Simulated scan of single mutants.
Amino acid sequence: MSASLRITEIFYSLQGESRSIGLPTVFVRLTGCPLRCVYCDTEYAFHGGERQSIDEIVAKVESYAPRYVCVTGGEPLAQPDCLPLLTALCDAGYEVSLETSGAMPVDAVDPRVSRVVDLKTPASGEQHRNLMDNLPHLGANDQIKFVICDRGDYDWARFQLDQYQLNEKVGEVLFSPSFEQLPARQLADWIVEDNLPVRFQLQLHKLLWQDAAGH
């Protein structure tokens, strides 16, 4: 039987976050996630979806004639056939990123993929799921993201940044305020005050379209 995955949606939009923010991108949202972060904006992707073969997924992506493809979820790596899908998209010539919770191993991901790995903060409710063994496998093509809910999260993230020298390991370290939990200006002020080597980011899709989903 050929590889297949359960897909919640495939759509074309602007990348709302990460290093490629603002670039027209096809999103392939896989179904299912073992985490339950308090700020999750894609709970509709926990269940359901439609099973599609890798060939069907690649054909749908191709119909948009994109340059960039983002495989997201849910937690895409919870489906083992995510790995051959990522390779197939790279082979098709796209610049591919993977948005992952950081709770699943990333070492087997095609090295051409930019892995955007969350480190879950204490206020997320899922800090204990962080797989710190992922860090040695990350490099200049990868990104680490912190969603900051409060000052405690910020201080925790700042400690991780220093302890693991994250800005030297990966291409981008991203600090993002949790939507409607932490004022964006507050996080920006903290970053500037502490002169952190990180990129502040807002979720562009929520500013443009008041879009609840994490595009």
Rank of each mutant, 00 (worst) to 15 (best):
L83F: 14
T31I: 10
R185W: 00
M132H: 04
G73P: 12
R158S: 14
A103T: 11
L30E: 08
T31S: 15
P183A: 07
C70K: 00
Q15D: 05
G102C: 03
P183N: 02
G125I: 03
C33R: 12
V28F: 11
S2V: 07
N195M: 14
F159S: 14
E62G: 07
G125S: 08
H215M: 07
R51L: 07
L202D: 00
D142E: 06
Y94V: 04
F146R: 10
S176C: 02
G16F: 11
E9R: 11
Q143G: 01
G74P: 11
G32C: 08
V71Y: 14
L182C: 13
G48S: 11
Q160W: 10
Q79W: 13
Q165Y: 03
A140Y: 02
L35W: 13
R36I: 01
G16Y: 11
S114C: 08
C82L: 06
R51D: 11
K169F: 00
L98A: 07
Q165H: 08
D162H: 08
V173Y: 01
Q201Y: 02
I57R: 11
N134C: 14
E95Q: 11
F175V: 05
Q160A: 06
L166T: 02
P197C: 14
A108L: 12
A157H: 12
E126K: 10
G32D: 04
S4V: 04
I54K: 09
R112G: 00
C33F: 06
H137V: 06
L187D: 01
D162K: 12
D81P: 05
E56M: 06
D162S: 10
D91G: 00
P24L: 10
I54T: 13
D133A: 15
D110S: 09
L131C: 10
Q165I: 01
P84W: 15
T87H: 15
D162V: 07
C33P: 09
A188N: 04
S2R: 11
D133Y: 06
S4R: 12
A213P: 00
R29W: 05
L208N: 01
C37K: 10
L208K: 03
G125E: 07
L208T: 02
Y68R: 15
R29Q: 08
V198W: 01
Q160Y: 06
S178H: 04
D211Q: 13
A78Y: 14
T31Y: 10
F146D: 08
P24W: 11
F159T: 12
F159R: 15
G22I: 08
L77T: 13
E56V: 04
P105L: 03
T100G: 06
V26T: 04
S13M: 03
V26W: 00
L174M: 07
L119W: 09
S63L: 06
D118I: 06
A212Y: 03
I144R: 09
A123R: 09
E95A: 07
N134W: 12
E56W: 04
D133P: 06
I57W: 12
E75M: 15
E9L: 04
L30W: 04
G102S: 04
T31A: 13
E172C: 02
T87N: 14
Y64V: 01
Y164C: 02
A188I: 00
V113W: 01
T8G: 09
F159M: 12
L30G: 09
R115L: 01
V147F: 03
R129Y: 06
A108G: 02
G22Q: 05
A92E: 07
M1D: 08
Y68N: 15
E75S: 14
A88H: 05
L131P: 10
S97F: 02
